[in-house]
């Protein structure tokens, strides 16, 4: 058996939920192979996130134009910026900082992508989309429903105001992922599909998954840690594929 928090002191670990778990139950123990698997998962996710950021910045420098800036900033923020905050190194990052800055970084990343898609929201020459289509509104409706359900269940389970902020992030992420899924379908684009999957796994799913797990009653901490770290790894891999695929 390996003491997970001890292991994470030297290597790092996981998502916000995982760190919360570890703090609630500092002596949580898992089988040694499982603990090693968690660590490998997180290290892979970090490496993929860094590679994604490097590729995005390289491509941006090679094809610099201001229209790409928002898109690249969005990709980097979603893929990389939250990683240091997701990593749990005991005593280094206060939980409050993680709780506050993670949704801020995610929101900024999503807004940057939306800026690239829709332009300046103010009624100026910078606004490029003047009339949303019916399908745009359908994706908006789906996103709001998903976020509302997440917040509703969270409130019923006694979550604080933080669930409201998390719900807003979930709505934004679901909308961006939904539009990317539409692009994937329309253009038969694997890259757009992987972008959609990446945004879902990294930003949209962790909060609802956590809420669902809480709603399901007492669940093994290992399951929480495994699901969240797995979602982060799949998300980072999807973001990497988005930039690698040609």
């Amino acid at each position: 058996m390996t003491d997970v928090p001890t292991a994470t002191r030297t290597l790092a670990i996981l998502a916000v939920e995982a760190s919360r778990v570890a703090q609630r139950e500092p002596r949580m123990t898992v089988d040694e192979p499982l603990g090693l698997a968690f660590i490998v998962t997180v290290v892979l996710a970090v490496l993929l996130g860094v590679a994604t950021a490097g590729l995005a910045l390289y491509r941006y420098r090679a094809r610099s134009d201001p229209g790409l800036r928002s898109f690249v900033v969005g990709l980097v923020l979603i893929a990389v910026a939250p990683l240091p905050l997701r990593i749990f190194v005991e005593g280094t990052v206060p939980p409050v900082l993680r709780d506050v800055f993670l949704p801020i970084f995610e929101t900024l990343g999503l807004l940057a992508i939306l800026w690239g898609m829709y332009g300046d929201p103010r009624p100026t020459d910078g606004r490029l989309i003047h009339r949303p289509t019916t399908r745009d509104l359908a994706v908006v409706g789906l996103s709001l429903a998903f976020a509302t359900a997440t917040v509703g269940v969270g409130v019923l389970l006694g979550s604080g105001a933080a669930i409201l902020a998390a719900g807003a992030v979930v709505a934004l992420a679901t909308f961006v992922a939904g539009q990317a899924a539409r692009a994937a379908y329309r253009y038969r684009s694997l890259a757009m599909g992987s972008l959609s999957l990446g945004v879902l796994c990294l930003v949209a799913f962790p909060t609802p998954v956590s809420v669902l797990l809480r709603a399901a009653g007492p669940v093994p901490d290992v399951l929480v840690v495994g699901l969240i770290s797995g979602a982060v790894l799949v998300g980072e891999a999807a973001m990497f594929v988005t930039l690698v695929y040609r």
């Binding site: 134009d65 229209g67 898609m117 539409r182 692009a183 684009s189 757009m192 930039l243 040609r246």
Partner: peptide, 18 residues
């Protein structure tokens, strides 16, 4: 040829790949 937000998202990606 569509010219909406979905098309713009795809074009952003295409320009990044060029």
């Amino acid at each position: 040829v569509e010219d909406d937000a979905v098309d713009r998202l795809n074009r952003l990606y295409e320009r990044l790949q060029q």
